[in-house]
Amino acid sequence: MFASILQRVGQAVFVMFCMTIVVFIGMNLIGNPIDLLISPNATPVERQRLIAEFGLDQAIWVQYWRFLVGLAHLDLGVSYIFNEPALRVILQRFPATMELALMATFLSVLIGVPLGLYAGLRPYSPVSRLIMTSSILGFSLPTFWVGMMFILLFSVQLGWLPSSGRGETVTVFGMQWSFLTLDGLSHLLLPALNLALFKASLILRLTRAGVAEVLPQDYVRLAHAKGLSARRVVYVHVLKNVMIPVVTVVGLEFGSVIAFSVVTETIFAWPGMGKLIIDSINNLDRPIIVAYLMIIVLLFVTINLVVDILYTVLDPRVQFSKTGKR
């Protein structure tokens, strides 16, 4: 078991290394940042000075080596636009994204579990059919489209909720949070709901499938036979067992919520990492793009690694080195 964990960690490191090469080479193929940064009116001397300052005149492998050394020192370069270390610029926006993703996950459970429970307990009622049909829409509608409709309906037409920004924030532990003020909460609601819909559909279907599977089992029938109230059977005996896969999926999908926050943040002008990366791609702000890609790859490689290791620890039958051999 220890060997397979070690192998897994080795693979993760190898993936990270490959990503540094891919990202670095790719970034050097994009248009010349010099043209963007330096006004055409700059004198040739100024031009040369700036090129040397950004290290853009070195051979590509020298630049790559400097990049790797920088990575090791957590130095991912200085943003061309913000003129601050790229890593710091991204980490400053991290709490906003985190807050949005956590709120979205919370809402998706809040919406998905009760609806899934209802649809599972009354599979043939028209309401359940409506719920299931809506969940297909939740899967297939593009997130940005739904977000746009939210803004059109709740912000432009009804004027109930604001459509952009974080609103008033409170500083806790040196980070700013919106959910602690009423104004911030009203700004958070629409984007979080937008981001939650896809996951809510997923959780809804999982819960419903789980309920359908658990209901006919002996322990549920026993609980009924013991004379427990229907309420207690559902909320304690059924729900408890249904929640296990739901919790697993919520954990696994958290990374994906962060990834999809790119879309929601752009629509609602939420000042998080996702909006930053889109702006940076459009501005060709290479250090930010590189730093974002490295952070997000690290995040996902870590999530996958932890899941794999947990599976190995929890289920001894899983042996990674033997897959594929017959």
Partner: peptide, 15 residues
């Protein structure tokens, strides 16, 4: 990896 992330990575790198 989530679909949007893979696509975003490629487009960030390739333009």
């Amino acid at each position: 990896f989530p679909t949007i992330l893979v696509a975003l990575m490629i487009l960030a790198v390739m333009g």
